[in-house]
């Protein structure tokens, strides 16, 4: 889902940066208020953790592998605002140091994965888990649904970004300048692969990590209450 430079036109890149700037500003303010000085390194560690999650290849039946984004997990463990900063930092490190995901597309990538996926996943998890106990099975189900739905909603926003490029940028001769496929191709392709493969990878990782933490250290699943707005 990492969009490289060159896929999106200047309008989409500019608009997504314009949307993300106040989100980052608000996230910094809220996190500064809610996170005490002692927890500041936690943000950096969480960002590195998100980065590393993306390196784990999870086996999928059929012999292939895929990797999770970990955005919903970051939201559940840190709260949505701190999760948003952590995923944004991980994406910035990937784009700047390893050329994975673009510099001009960083706003778009952060919008999809650090904003849409984190917030959608976090609120789905909260709604489904309700006031159930930290160790209840309902939270495991909530984590799975949140992981699957969060990633697919983010895939949909990415697909819309791809699909509007031919509408926004075309020469008089009908030549596309950026991503060449319209909404009729981009949405089914992006949603298809995410609904059939990557959504399940995200769900499996989120479920198994929540389940493991419920058994080993349930207090870690309470952290979000301290740092969430």
């Amino acid at each position: 889902m990492h969009i490289p430079d060159g896929y999106l036109g200047p309008v989409t890149c500019g608009v997504t940066y314009a949307v993300m700037l106040p989100v980052w500003g608000l996230a910094s303010k809220i996190v500064k208020k809610t996170l005490n000085a002692k927890q500041v390194p936690l943000l950096a560690i969480a960002a590195a953790f998100s980065f590393v999650i993306m390196m784990f290849n999870v086996p999928i039946p059929g012999g292939t592998t895929g990797h999770a984004v970990g955005a919903v997990l970051a939201g559940i463990l840190l709260g949505p605002w701190a999760g948003c900063i952590a995923i944004s930092v991980a994406l910035a490190v990937q784009a700047l140091l390893f050329g994975d995901g673009g510099i001009t597309a960083l706003g778009a990538n952060c919008f999809n994965m650090a904003f849409v996926e984190v917030f959608a996943g976090y609120y789905i998890y909260r709604i489904i888990s309700g006031s159930s106990a930290i160790t209840s099975g309902r939270r495991v189900v909530a984590a799975g649904i949140a992981g699957y739905a969060g990633l697919n909603i983010a895939a949909l926003t990415a697909a819309i970004m791809f699909g509007i490029q031919p509408l926004l940028h075309k020469t008089a001769q009908g030549q596309s300048l950026y991503c060449p496929y319209g909404l009729n191709v981009a949405i089914p392709v992006m949603l298809g692969e995410h609904m059939l493969v990557f959504g399940f990878v995200e769900a499996v990782v989120t479920v198994l990590v929540v389940k493991y933490l419920q058994k080993q250290d349930p207090d870690l699943l309470k952290i979000k209450k301290e740092v969430a707005a």
């Binding site: 936690l42 198994l208 250290d217």
Partner: peptide
């Protein structure tokens, strides 16, 4: 496959546990 997925999840969760312990020392 099932065990492999468990190993991955165990690694991720254990990493988070270690990370959380580490942030106190880093501070």
């Amino acid at each position: 496959i099932k065990n492999s997925q468990g190993v991955v999840a165990w690694n991720i969760a254990a990493l988070w546990q270690r990370s959380y312990v580490m942030h106190n020392r880093v501070y």
